[in-house]
Design a protein around this nucleic acid. Structure first.
Lengths: 109, 109
DNA sequence: ATTATTTATTGCAATATTACGATATATTTT
DNA sequence: AAAATATATCGTAATATTGCAATAAATAAT
């Protein structure tokens, strides 16, 4: 086999898994942190910042964009990326619901 | 290549990515939700609940356990799983820091 | 128009993940 | 001790991910 059986899970479970997967790589965590830290669009300083090839970073950016976590606009010869505010908020809410659903009680195991 | 170059990222970035990856599958989201919803240990009703083979579920449980998100104790012939309270708290804090680091401002792109 | 600059895409090799049947292990019941 | 029950592990096939060199595409500067 080798392919996730998405059809047996709920839409919510699949969507959350997709968002988590988009962030589940140290390079993509680093990219997001860099975008957040710079507090504005970043235009092409990622290749110098991280130690990965340009093609690799472009690929990671594409995945983040596909997941809707970031957005980019062409700015002359370069492309500027920033967080997608709506989706970031949605993700925060979904994760808060998911993670906050657990309330530590008397340990059972 | 095909293997993540962890050495070029920080310990924090790698650890967060590992935790996110552990959750980044609909089956594992479903397993965690089921454990949380039942509010106590669950002992082997996952195979009936989800539509996956026993071997597959055992594998997913192992990954969640390796990541430290759940813990299990042998209870007679079956094994009971529950959330690992300390690590769950840690994950919540790390994610809040990460996700909360972004504050929506005047959109730039 | 040519050259430089920046990002995207393609192609490919190495590795990882997903799923499951078969089988092993471990405990309880008979 | 043998059978039943529950979980783990092994082996394997199918698919996905990661990384990069090479190349394409698109705009800016000369």
């Amino acid at each position: 086999m080798g392919l996730t059986r998405t059809e047996i899970f709920t839409k919510e479970q699949n969507e959350l898994a997709i968002l988590l997967k988009a962030m589940a790589h140290p390079a993509r965590v680093a990219i997001l942190q860099h975008i957040i830290a710079s507090k504005t669009c970043i235009c092409g300083d990622l290749v110098d910042e991280l130690g990965l090839a340009q093609a690799t970073i472009s690929q990671h950016l594409k995945e983040l964009k596909n997941a809707g976590l970031i957005q980019g606009t062409i700015e002359g010869v370069s492309v500027c990326y920033c967080i997608n505010p709506e989706n970031w908020e949605k993700l925060k809410n979904q994760l808060n619901l998911f993670l906050g659903g657990y309330v530590a009680s008397a340990s059972c195991c």
